[in-house]
Write a protein that binds this DNA or RNA. Structure first.
Length: 291
DNA sequence: GATGCGTGGGA
DNA sequence: TTCCCAAGCAT
């Protein structure tokens, strides 16, 4: 019966899959790795143009490794979580220095690269190298929670039970195809907000739907305002550095956030994180950049 | 295990 | 308008 579920989802993927550039033939492991890091907590629609620009500019890890880290941050644009740009740059240097310029192919090697956790290591090993891993992202967790466990949403943190279930579903043949198919189902049909059960290839065997789509009764899943936070302040400051064509005088940073205490804390945080660099003359710039 | 970390679009 | 959340990771 697990086999029937898998087959229905993989068949659906055959006709419903999006034509995403990092899925096309000829895209190497570097392109896959770049896409996976950009897609961490970021919608596909916003990643698309940045990925295209990035791959044209830096088609290999060595090309990116030759740049100062600040250039990666600059071209990250407004994708958010800019530490990922630093992580990708550090990946490029580690790949160049320690892996002969080639993105490593095993889960364990990938997992040791900066900013690569369980999901991303499994995804790259699967999608770039055909490996067989449980690729457990938020989409897959939601699909399995509904179809198998009969609950609207998965637990807040990944549990051992979820992992065991995901591993039990890995097919012996073409595991990456199953992994990308079930992810795609979660992204397009079995969505968080308004699932399109009418279009779902496994609606007839979905435990949650068969139970009448009972509402989630677990602990509150959210609650986090953004306005006024250090995160927003950091974002404002970094945007100034990104868009500047030279070292930025302190007053230009002061202008974008009125609370001086919070502003200084945020700026110190950016410097500590390696996202900003103070110069001897009191100006600031993206780390290592010249222009 | 709980927190901090950006951003923008859709409901 | 406000709220939710989108292929997570590190501490």
């Amino acid at each position: 019966m697990a086999g029937a579920l898998r087959e229905a989802i993989v068949d659906w993927y055959g006709v419903a899959a999006r034509d995403l550039p990092w899925r096309r033939a000829g895209v190497g492991a570097w392109g896959v790795l770049v896409s996976e890091i950009m897609l961490q907590q970021t919608p596909v629609a916003r990643v698309l143009p940045v990925w295209e620009d990035w791959m044209e500019r830096w088609p290999t890890p060595a090309a990116l490794a030759d740049e100062p880290p600040g250039e990666a941050v600059r071209h990250w644009g407004r994708l958010g979580y800019p530490r990922r740009a630093l992580n990708l740059h550090a990946c490029a240097r580690a790949i160049t220095d320690d892996h002969d310029g080639k993105v490593p192919s095993t889960y364990d090697e990938l997992r040791r690269l900066p900013g690569i956790g369980d999901y991303t290591a499994a995804a790259v090993a699967s999608f770039a190298y055909g490996g067989s891993h449980a690729v457990l992202d938020t989409n897959v967790r939601r699909v399995l929670a509904r179809a198998v466990r009969g609950e609207e949403f998965p637990p807040k943190a990944t549990t051992a039970a979820e992992r065991t279930l995901a591993e039990s579903l890995i097919p012996e043949v073409d595991a990456p195809r199953w992994a990308v198919a079930v992810m795609e189902l979660g992204a397009l049909v079995c969505t968080a907000r308004a699932p399109r059960c009418a279009d779902c290839p496994v609606a007839g065997e979905c435990a949650w739907r068969l139970a009448g789509r009972p509402a989630y009764d677990g602990p509150a899943r959210r609650g986090q305002t953004y306005a006024g936070t250090d995160r927003q302040c950091r974002g404002r400051l970094l945007a100034v550095l990104r868009e500047a064509h030279g070292p930025v005088p302190k007053p230009a940073l002061d202008a974008v956030w009125s609370d001086a205490v919070q502003r200084e804390r945020a700026l110190d945080g950016l410097v500590a994180d390696g996202l900003a660099e103070p110069l001897a003359d009191g100006t600031y710039r993206l780390p290592g950049t010249v222009i």
